[in-house]
């Protein structure tokens, strides 16, 4: 066990790498890492796919009425903790409008936060809040492809799907990489909305890596282990980001 607690915060003893060993031996750490990686991958892929589709599909409208972007990106303004709080209300069986209308229209409503559904519920919540971000990135990238390039491609007979796949998408590839990396890292380090909505979840079922760090830091009072986990997390994030940059800088020939 660590020698750093709140009681010894100002006069800790050095422990070497004992804290790191403790963390690596803790099953809950690996569970939370697994949750974070699954959550981060899934939400990043969904957000990027959806954002890309919407940016391209809605481009004719959004380029003419740019103010609509303000409405579409409004969720980004809401603090994730507030978002969690709102969904606590919205999904509640007795006061929430979602179960209310589902019951009224279909006579049944799923238990969104029951053990079998809670993972998908938090994924959908995250995707709904952050797809606007990827939409915005792709909207800018799509709009910045110069008209001359499109014109030239059109002269060569490119159109529709082929145009997108061979001309437009390759030009947005750097944005694609950056969006995926940012959303992945953001997904892995998800904290506020899940913490407010379900805490660590029944038996730790929605314990992301930051929630693990938070609970061991405070509740467990095990500061040494929490810091060790934080350091491991920071190193891993750095690696991912470095890879993403290399990917982004590999501009299409």
């Amino acid at each position: 066990m660590s020698e750093v607690g709140f009681e010894t915060l100002r006069a800790p003893q050095l422990e070497g790498f004992g804290n790191f060993a403790d963390v690596l031996r803790d099953e809950a750490f690996w569970d939370s890492l697994g949750f974070s990686l699954r959550f981060g991958t899934l939400t990043a892929v969904l957000e990027v796919a959806l954002g890309l589709f919407l940016a391209v599909f809605l481009a004719p409208i959004l380029q003419r009425h740019a103010w609509l972007l303000a409405i579409l990106t409004l969720p980004m303004m809401v603090a994730p903790a507030m978002m969690g709080l709102m969904y606590r209300l919205v999904l509640h069986e007795f006061v929430g409008p979602v179960p209310h209308y589902l019951l009224a229209w279909f006579g049944t409503s799923p238990a969104f936060l029951a053990p079998g559904n809670v993972f998908w519920t938090v994924v959908v919540i995250e995707v709904l809040q952050w797809t606007p971000f990827t939409l915005l990135l792709f909207h800018l990238a799509y709009g910045s492809i110069s008209g001359e390039i499109r014109e030239a491609a059109r002269m060569d007979g490119a159109k529709g799907w082929w145009m997108f796949r061979r001309v437009e998408f390759p030009m947005m590839l750097p944005t694609f990489g950056v969006a995926l990396a940012i959303r992945f890292i953001d997904g892995v380090r998800v904290f506020d909305n899940i913490y407010v909505l379900t805490g660590a979840g029944a038996g730790g079922s929605t314990m992301s890596l930051p929630i693990y760090i938070y609970t061991s830091f405070f509740r467990g009072g095990n500061i040494g282990a929490a810091l060790a986990a934080s350091v491991l997390f920071a190193l891993a994030s750095f690696l991912i980001l470095a890879l993403a940059w290399r990917f982004a800088q590999r501009r299409p020939a």
């Binding site: 409004l74 969720p75 797809t131």
Partner: peptide
């Protein structure tokens, strides 16, 4: 396109509206 846009705008803003 408009239908998709309105649906998406509603979905992402639903908790705020509610």
């Amino acid at each position: 396109r408009w239908a998709v846009l309105i649906l998406f705008a509603f979905l992402v803003n639903a908790p705020v509206i509610a």
